[in-house]
Computed example of a mutant assay.
Amino acid sequence: MSDEPLLGPLEAARIREGIAAAVIGVPEGLADSLEHDAAGYLRLVDASRVGAEEASRLLREAVQGARAAGHSWETVGRILGVSRQAAQQRFAAPAAPGAPTGGGPGSPERRILSPLTAFNEMAALDEAGRDGWHLVGYGSFFHEVEVSGHPWEHCRVTLSSGGRHRRMEAAGWIPVGEGWFPWRYYKRPLGPVKES
Rank of each mutant, 00 (worst) to 15 (best):
Y138I: 03
L6K: 03
R156D: 07
H165Y: 09
G18E: 09
P189E: 06
L135I: 05
R188F: 05
G40I: 05
S72M: 07
R111Q: 13
V82E: 08
G132S: 06
A124H: 13
V193A: 11
V193P: 00
G139Y: 08
E35P: 00
G177V: 00
P175K: 15
R78E: 13
H36Q: 07
F142Q: 02
W173R: 08
V157L: 15
E178K: 12
V147K: 13
A99M: 09
F91R: 04
E144G: 02
L59S: 00
I112V: 12
D126H: 08
D32K: 07
T75Q: 15
L159S: 07
G163K: 10
G139C: 06
W133A: 01
A62P: 00
H134K: 07
E144I: 04
L58C: 12
G102P: 02
V145G: 05
M1V: 14
I15H: 04
D126W: 03
L135A: 09
Y138T: 03
C155M: 14
K187C: 12
S160F: 11
W173A: 05
G25L: 08
L42H: 04
R184S: 06
G8D: 12
D131E: 14
T158Y: 15
M168G: 09
W180E: 15
G191H: 10
L44K: 01
L80P: 01
L7A: 04
G65H: 08
N120A: 04
H143A: 14
A22E: 12
S161C: 11
P105D: 12
E61Q: 15
F181A: 09
R130D: 11
E17G: 11
A47D: 02
E54D: 08
I79Y: 12
G25V: 12
A62V: 02
A13V: 00
K187S: 11
P5D: 10
W73S: 08
R166M: 11
A170I: 00
I19V: 15
S48K: 02
E74Q: 13
P192W: 12
W133K: 01
V50R: 13
S83K: 03
R57Q: 05
G104I: 13
E144Q: 06
L30F: 08
P115G: 06
